[in-house]
Protein backbone atom coordinates (compact mmCIF):
# COMPACT_ATOMS: atom_id res chain seq x y z
CA UNK A 1 0.00 0.00 0.00
CA UNK A 2 2.88 2.32 0.86
CA UNK A 3 4.40 1.59 -2.54
CA UNK A 4 1.15 2.45 -4.31
CA UNK A 5 0.99 5.75 -2.43
CA UNK A 6 4.61 6.49 -3.32
CA UNK A 7 3.95 5.73 -6.98
CA UNK A 8 0.80 7.86 -6.99
CA UNK A 9 2.68 10.72 -5.36
CA UNK A 10 5.46 10.56 -7.92
CA UNK A 11 3.01 10.37 -10.84
CA UNK A 12 0.87 13.23 -9.52
CA UNK A 13 3.78 15.65 -9.85
CA UNK A 14 4.18 14.87 -13.57
CA UNK A 15 1.19 16.81 -14.95
CA UNK A 16 2.03 19.84 -12.80
CA UNK A 17 5.63 19.84 -14.04
CA UNK A 18 4.45 19.39 -17.61
CA UNK A 19 1.94 22.21 -17.34
CA UNK A 20 4.68 24.48 -16.03
CA UNK A 21 6.92 23.45 -18.90
CA UNK A 22 4.19 24.10 -21.50
CA UNK A 23 3.36 27.49 -19.97
CA UNK A 24 6.96 28.70 -19.78
CA UNK A 25 7.86 27.45 -23.26
CA UNK A 26 4.70 28.94 -24.74
CA UNK A 27 5.29 32.34 -23.17
CA UNK A 28 8.95 32.39 -24.21
CA UNK A 29 7.88 31.39 -27.72
CA UNK A 30 5.48 34.30 -27.90
CA UNK A 31 7.66 37.01 -26.40
CA UNK A 32 10.76 36.42 -28.52
CA UNK A 33 11.44 39.48 -30.67
CA UNK A 34 10.63 37.63 -33.89
CA UNK A 35 7.32 37.87 -35.67
CA UNK A 36 6.45 34.22 -36.41
CA UNK A 37 4.30 35.30 -39.34
CA UNK A 38 7.20 37.09 -40.99
CA UNK A 39 9.25 33.97 -40.34
CA UNK A 40 6.64 31.97 -42.25
CA UNK A 41 5.75 34.20 -45.16
CA UNK A 42 9.08 35.93 -45.58
CA UNK A 43 10.30 39.49 -45.54
CA UNK A 44 8.79 40.44 -48.87
CA UNK A 45 5.22 39.29 -48.27
CA UNK A 46 2.50 41.91 -48.81
CA UNK A 47 0.61 43.19 -45.71
CA UNK A 48 -2.65 41.43 -46.68
CA UNK A 49 -0.91 38.02 -46.82
CA UNK A 50 0.69 38.70 -43.44
CA UNK A 51 -2.68 39.67 -41.92
CA UNK A 52 -4.38 36.59 -43.37
CA UNK A 53 -1.70 34.17 -42.14
CA UNK A 54 -1.72 35.84 -38.71
CA UNK A 55 -5.46 35.24 -38.49
CA UNK A 56 -5.14 31.67 -39.82
CA UNK A 57 -2.62 30.86 -37.10
CA UNK A 58 -4.77 32.50 -34.43
CA UNK A 59 -1.94 34.88 -33.58
CA UNK A 60 -4.26 37.86 -33.72
CA UNK A 61 -6.05 36.62 -30.59
CA UNK A 62 -5.10 37.52 -27.00
CA UNK A 63 -2.22 35.49 -25.56
CA UNK A 64 -4.31 33.65 -22.91
CA UNK A 65 -6.76 32.54 -25.62
CA UNK A 66 -3.87 31.32 -27.77
CA UNK A 67 -2.54 29.37 -24.79
CA UNK A 68 -5.88 27.74 -24.04
CA UNK A 69 -6.24 26.69 -27.68
CA UNK A 70 -2.72 25.28 -27.65
CA UNK A 71 -3.37 23.28 -24.46
CA UNK A 72 -6.69 22.02 -25.83
CA UNK A 73 -4.98 20.81 -29.02
CA UNK A 74 -2.16 19.36 -26.96
CA UNK A 75 -4.60 17.27 -24.96
CA UNK A 76 -5.84 15.88 -28.28
CA UNK A 77 -2.27 14.96 -29.21
CA UNK A 78 -2.03 17.80 -31.72
CA UNK A 79 1.20 19.77 -31.52
CA UNK A 80 0.33 21.76 -34.63
CA UNK A 81 2.12 21.88 -37.93
CA UNK A 82 5.74 22.82 -38.53
CA UNK A 83 6.23 25.71 -40.91
CA UNK A 84 9.67 24.50 -41.83
CA UNK A 85 8.77 20.97 -42.87
CA UNK A 86 5.03 21.35 -43.57
CA UNK A 87 4.45 18.20 -41.52
CA UNK A 88 2.63 17.75 -38.26
CA UNK A 89 5.10 18.29 -35.43
CA UNK A 90 4.26 14.82 -34.09
CA UNK A 91 5.25 13.34 -37.48
CA UNK A 92 8.51 15.28 -37.44
CA UNK A 93 9.33 14.19 -33.91
CA UNK A 94 8.68 10.57 -34.88
CA UNK A 95 11.12 11.06 -37.75
CA UNK A 96 13.89 12.95 -35.93
CA UNK A 97 13.79 11.64 -32.37
CA UNK A 98 14.88 8.04 -33.14
CA UNK A 99 18.18 9.38 -34.50
CA UNK A 100 18.76 11.12 -31.17
CA UNK A 101 17.84 7.96 -29.24
CA UNK A 102 20.27 6.00 -31.41
CA UNK A 103 23.07 8.46 -30.73
CA UNK A 104 22.36 8.85 -27.01
CA UNK A 105 22.03 5.11 -26.45
CA UNK A 106 25.32 4.38 -28.21
CA UNK A 107 26.94 7.13 -26.13
CA UNK A 108 25.58 5.94 -22.80
CA UNK A 109 26.67 2.37 -23.51
CA UNK A 110 30.21 3.56 -24.26
CA UNK A 111 30.19 5.86 -21.25
CA UNK A 112 29.05 3.06 -18.93
CA UNK A 113 31.53 0.54 -20.33
CA UNK A 114 34.39 2.90 -19.60
CA UNK A 115 33.08 5.16 -16.83
CA UNK A 116 32.01 2.57 -14.28
CA UNK A 117 35.21 0.49 -14.32
CA UNK A 118 37.25 3.69 -14.32
CA UNK A 119 35.33 5.05 -11.31
CA UNK A 120 35.59 1.78 -9.41
CA UNK A 121 39.33 1.45 -10.07
CA UNK A 122 40.00 5.08 -9.21
CA UNK A 123 38.20 4.62 -5.89
CA UNK A 124 40.05 1.41 -5.11
CA UNK A 125 43.38 3.15 -5.68
CA UNK A 126 42.54 6.50 -4.21
CA UNK A 127 45.39 8.99 -4.52
CA UNK A 128 47.33 6.81 -6.96
CA UNK A 129 48.50 7.90 -10.41
CA UNK A 130 45.58 6.02 -11.96
CA UNK A 131 43.18 7.98 -9.76
CA UNK A 132 44.74 11.27 -10.88
CA UNK A 133 44.61 10.29 -14.55
CA UNK A 134 40.97 9.27 -14.28
CA UNK A 135 40.19 12.53 -12.47
CA UNK A 136 41.87 14.66 -15.14
CA UNK A 137 40.13 12.76 -17.95
CA UNK A 138 36.77 13.01 -16.17
CA UNK A 139 37.07 16.71 -15.53
CA UNK A 140 38.11 17.16 -19.16
CA UNK A 141 34.88 15.51 -20.34
CA UNK A 142 32.81 17.82 -18.19
CA UNK A 143 34.68 21.04 -18.82
CA UNK A 144 35.58 20.98 -22.52
CA UNK A 145 32.58 22.24 -24.50
CA UNK A 146 31.06 19.42 -26.47
CA UNK A 147 31.26 21.29 -29.79
CA UNK A 148 34.99 21.89 -29.31
CA UNK A 149 35.46 18.22 -28.57
CA UNK A 150 33.40 17.34 -31.66
CA UNK A 151 35.57 19.48 -33.89
CA UNK A 152 38.77 18.09 -32.38
CA UNK A 153 37.55 14.54 -32.94
CA UNK A 154 36.62 15.38 -36.55
CA UNK A 155 40.01 16.96 -37.09
CA UNK A 156 41.90 13.97 -35.72
CA UNK A 157 39.89 10.96 -36.90
CA UNK A 158 38.36 12.32 -40.12
CA UNK A 159 40.78 14.94 -41.42
CA UNK A 160 44.18 13.83 -40.21
CA UNK A 161 43.92 10.06 -39.80
CA UNK A 162 41.12 9.51 -42.36
CA UNK A 163 39.82 6.50 -40.47
CA UNK A 164 36.34 7.82 -39.77
CA UNK A 165 33.69 9.21 -42.11
CA UNK A 166 32.71 12.87 -41.99
CA UNK A 167 29.51 14.37 -40.76
CA UNK A 168 26.01 13.06 -41.34
CA UNK A 169 24.20 9.87 -40.43
CA UNK A 170 25.11 7.86 -43.50
CA UNK A 171 26.98 7.86 -46.78
CA UNK A 172 25.11 9.50 -49.62
CA UNK A 173 25.07 6.11 -51.36
CA UNK A 174 22.58 4.78 -48.81
CA UNK A 175 20.44 7.91 -48.65
CA UNK A 176 16.82 6.80 -48.93
CA UNK A 177 17.79 3.12 -49.29
CA UNK A 178 17.16 1.96 -45.74
CA UNK A 179 13.44 1.78 -44.89
CA UNK A 180 12.18 3.58 -41.79
CA UNK A 181 11.26 0.83 -39.32
CA UNK A 182 12.49 2.05 -35.94
CA UNK A 183 13.94 5.25 -37.34
CA UNK A 184 17.34 4.26 -35.96
CA UNK A 185 19.43 3.92 -39.06
CA UNK A 186 21.86 1.28 -37.83
CA UNK A 187 19.13 -0.93 -36.42
CA UNK A 188 16.94 -0.54 -39.50
CA UNK A 189 19.87 -1.48 -41.73
CA UNK A 190 20.49 -4.59 -39.60
CA UNK A 191 16.80 -5.51 -39.54
CA UNK A 192 16.62 -5.36 -43.34
CA UNK A 193 19.91 -7.19 -43.79
CA UNK A 194 21.65 -4.27 -45.50
CA UNK A 195 25.02 -4.91 -43.93
CA UNK A 196 26.97 -2.38 -46.00
CA UNK A 197 24.59 0.31 -44.83
CA UNK A 198 24.82 -1.08 -41.30
CA UNK A 199 28.61 -0.81 -41.15
CA UNK A 200 28.49 2.59 -42.81
CA UNK A 201 25.92 3.77 -40.26
CA UNK A 202 27.99 2.41 -37.39
CA UNK A 203 31.04 4.24 -38.67
CA UNK A 204 29.09 7.50 -38.91
CA UNK A 205 27.75 6.90 -35.40
CA UNK A 206 31.18 6.31 -33.87
CA UNK A 207 32.53 9.86 -33.60
CA UNK A 208 29.43 11.70 -32.34
CA UNK A 209 28.75 8.84 -29.94
CA UNK A 210 32.31 9.04 -28.62
CA UNK A 211 32.03 12.78 -28.12
CA UNK A 212 28.78 12.45 -26.21
CA UNK A 213 30.12 9.44 -24.32
CA UNK A 214 33.13 11.43 -23.19
CA UNK A 215 30.80 14.19 -22.03
CA UNK A 216 28.88 11.72 -19.80
CA UNK A 217 31.93 9.75 -18.85
CA UNK A 218 33.14 12.43 -16.47
CA UNK A 219 29.87 12.52 -14.55
CA UNK A 220 29.50 8.74 -14.37
CA UNK A 221 33.13 8.20 -13.39
CA UNK A 222 33.11 10.87 -10.68
CA UNK A 223 29.85 9.65 -9.19
CA UNK A 224 30.93 6.01 -9.29
CA UNK A 225 34.21 6.93 -7.61
CA UNK A 226 32.46 8.92 -4.90
CA UNK A 227 29.93 6.15 -4.18
CA UNK A 228 32.69 3.55 -4.15
CA UNK A 229 34.89 5.52 -1.75
CA UNK A 230 31.93 5.69 0.64
CA UNK A 231 31.17 2.02 0.19
CA UNK A 232 34.78 0.95 0.70
CA UNK A 233 34.75 2.58 4.13
CA UNK A 234 31.95 0.23 5.26
CA UNK A 235 32.49 -2.26 8.02
CA UNK A 236 31.26 -5.07 5.80
CA UNK A 237 34.24 -4.39 3.50
CA UNK A 238 36.64 -4.71 6.43
CA UNK A 239 34.89 -7.96 7.35
CA UNK A 240 35.18 -9.21 3.77
CA UNK A 241 38.88 -8.38 3.74
CA UNK A 242 39.34 -10.11 7.11
CA UNK A 243 37.68 -13.18 5.63
CA UNK A 244 40.42 -13.18 2.99
CA UNK A 245 38.21 -12.52 -0.06
CA UNK A 246 39.96 -11.44 -3.25
CA UNK A 247 40.22 -7.73 -4.09
CA UNK A 248 38.10 -8.12 -7.21
CA UNK A 249 35.37 -9.94 -5.35
CA UNK A 250 35.30 -7.26 -2.65
CA UNK A 251 35.22 -4.49 -5.19
CA UNK A 252 32.69 -5.82 -7.66
CA UNK A 253 30.50 -8.05 -5.56
CA UNK A 254 30.37 -6.41 -2.17
CA UNK A 255 31.09 -2.72 -2.72
CA UNK A 256 29.75 -2.28 -6.25
CA UNK A 257 26.67 -4.35 -5.44
CA UNK A 258 25.79 -1.82 -2.78
CA UNK A 259 26.31 1.28 -4.90
CA UNK A 260 24.50 -0.04 -7.99
CA UNK A 261 21.14 1.23 -6.75
CA UNK A 262 22.49 4.74 -6.39
CA UNK A 263 24.04 4.51 -9.83
CA UNK A 264 20.60 3.91 -11.39
CA UNK A 265 19.75 7.55 -10.73
CA UNK A 266 23.11 8.67 -12.06
CA UNK A 267 22.70 6.66 -15.27
CA UNK A 268 19.11 7.79 -15.78
CA UNK A 269 20.10 11.43 -15.37
CA UNK A 270 23.12 11.01 -17.63
CA UNK A 271 20.92 9.40 -20.30
CA UNK A 272 18.32 12.16 -19.96
CA UNK A 273 21.08 14.73 -20.34
CA UNK A 274 22.32 12.99 -23.46
CA UNK A 275 18.85 12.87 -25.02
CA UNK A 276 18.17 16.47 -24.24
CA UNK A 277 21.68 17.80 -24.57
CA UNK A 278 22.70 16.38 -27.93
CA UNK A 279 21.87 19.73 -29.59
CA UNK A 280 25.44 20.89 -30.11
CA UNK A 281 26.81 17.48 -31.04
CA UNK A 282 24.05 17.00 -33.60
CA UNK A 283 24.78 20.43 -35.04
CA UNK A 284 28.54 19.81 -35.32
CA UNK A 285 28.05 16.36 -36.86
CA UNK A 286 24.99 17.30 -38.98
CA UNK A 287 23.20 14.46 -37.21
CA UNK A 288 19.52 14.60 -38.16
CA UNK A 289 18.13 14.22 -34.65
CA UNK A 290 15.82 16.18 -32.41
CA UNK A 291 18.61 18.54 -31.36
CA UNK A 292 19.27 19.65 -34.91
CA UNK A 293 15.53 19.90 -35.54
CA UNK A 294 15.14 22.10 -32.46
CA UNK A 295 18.07 24.34 -33.40
CA UNK A 296 16.91 24.91 -36.96
CA UNK A 297 13.32 25.44 -35.81
CA UNK A 298 14.47 28.01 -33.32
CA UNK A 299 16.51 29.88 -35.92
CA UNK A 300 13.52 29.85 -38.25
CA UNK A 301 11.14 30.94 -35.47
CA UNK A 302 9.09 27.80 -36.17
CA UNK A 303 7.37 28.01 -32.80
CA UNK A 304 5.12 24.93 -33.03
CA UNK A 305 8.18 22.83 -33.76
CA UNK A 306 10.17 24.46 -30.95
CA UNK A 307 7.32 23.95 -28.47
CA UNK A 308 6.77 20.35 -29.55
CA UNK A 309 10.43 19.39 -29.42
CA UNK A 310 10.90 21.13 -26.06
CA UNK A 311 7.92 19.27 -24.66
CA UNK A 312 9.34 15.95 -25.83
CA UNK A 313 12.70 16.74 -24.25
CA UNK A 314 10.91 17.76 -21.06
CA UNK A 315 8.81 14.61 -21.09
CA UNK A 316 11.88 12.46 -21.53
CA UNK A 317 13.63 14.21 -18.70
CA UNK A 318 10.65 13.91 -16.40
CA UNK A 319 10.03 10.31 -17.49
CA UNK A 320 13.59 9.18 -16.85
CA UNK A 321 13.68 10.99 -13.53
CA UNK A 322 10.48 9.25 -12.56
CA UNK A 323 11.81 5.86 -13.62
CA UNK A 324 15.01 6.45 -11.65
CA UNK A 325 13.01 7.54 -8.65
CA UNK A 326 10.75 4.52 -8.81
CA UNK A 327 13.63 2.12 -9.42
CA UNK A 328 15.44 3.56 -6.45
CA UNK A 329 12.40 3.07 -4.25
CA UNK A 330 11.90 -0.41 -5.65
CA UNK A 331 15.43 -1.74 -5.30
CA UNK A 332 16.75 -0.01 -2.22
CA UNK A 333 15.54 -1.92 0.84
CA UNK A 334 16.11 1.15 3.03
CA UNK A 335 13.34 3.14 1.28
CA UNK A 336 10.89 0.28 0.85
Amino acid sequence: MKRVRTLAGALASVPITLFGLVLITFVIGRVVPIDPVVAIVGDHAPPEVIARVRAELGLDRPLPVQFLIYVKNLLHGDLGRSVMTSHRVTTDIAQYFPATIELATAAIILALLVGIPAGVLAASRQGSRLDHIVRVLSIGGQSVPVFVLGMIFLLIFYVKLGIAPGTGQQNVLYEGMVPHITGMHVIDAALTGQWDAFWDGLAHLALPALVLAYFSLGYITRMTRAYMIDALKGEYIITARAKGLSGARILWRHAFGNISVGLITVIALAYANLLSGAVLTETVFSWPGLGLYLTVSLLNADMNAVLGATLVVGLVYIGLNLIADLAYRLFDPRVR
Partner: peptide, 30 residues
Protein backbone atom coordinates in the same frame (compact mmCIF):
# COMPACT_ATOMS: atom_id res chain seq x y z
CA UNK B 1 41.03 -8.06 -13.49
CA UNK B 2 40.89 -4.91 -15.56
CA UNK B 3 44.22 -3.20 -15.10
CA UNK B 4 45.31 0.29 -16.01
CA UNK B 5 46.98 -0.76 -19.25
CA UNK B 6 43.94 -2.64 -20.50
CA UNK B 7 41.66 0.20 -19.58
CA UNK B 8 43.70 2.88 -21.34
CA UNK B 9 44.45 0.87 -24.44
CA UNK B 10 40.84 -0.29 -24.63
CA UNK B 11 39.55 3.27 -24.43
CA UNK B 12 41.99 4.47 -27.05
CA UNK B 13 41.04 1.64 -29.38
CA UNK B 14 37.31 2.37 -29.44
CA UNK B 15 37.31 4.78 -32.38
CA UNK B 16 39.56 2.46 -34.35
CA UNK B 17 37.37 -0.55 -33.59
CA UNK B 18 34.36 1.33 -34.84
CA UNK B 19 36.05 1.90 -38.15
CA UNK B 20 37.27 -1.64 -38.67
CA UNK B 21 36.12 -3.57 -41.73
CA UNK B 22 34.38 -0.56 -43.20
CA UNK B 23 34.23 0.19 -46.91
CA UNK B 24 36.28 3.25 -47.82
CA UNK B 25 33.17 4.67 -49.47
CA UNK B 26 33.63 8.08 -47.86
CA UNK B 27 36.79 8.65 -49.87
CA UNK B 28 34.85 9.79 -52.95
CA UNK B 29 31.28 10.30 -54.05
CA UNK B 30 29.84 7.55 -56.27
Amino acid sequence: MLDRRTLLSGTAAIPFLAALDLPAAWAATP
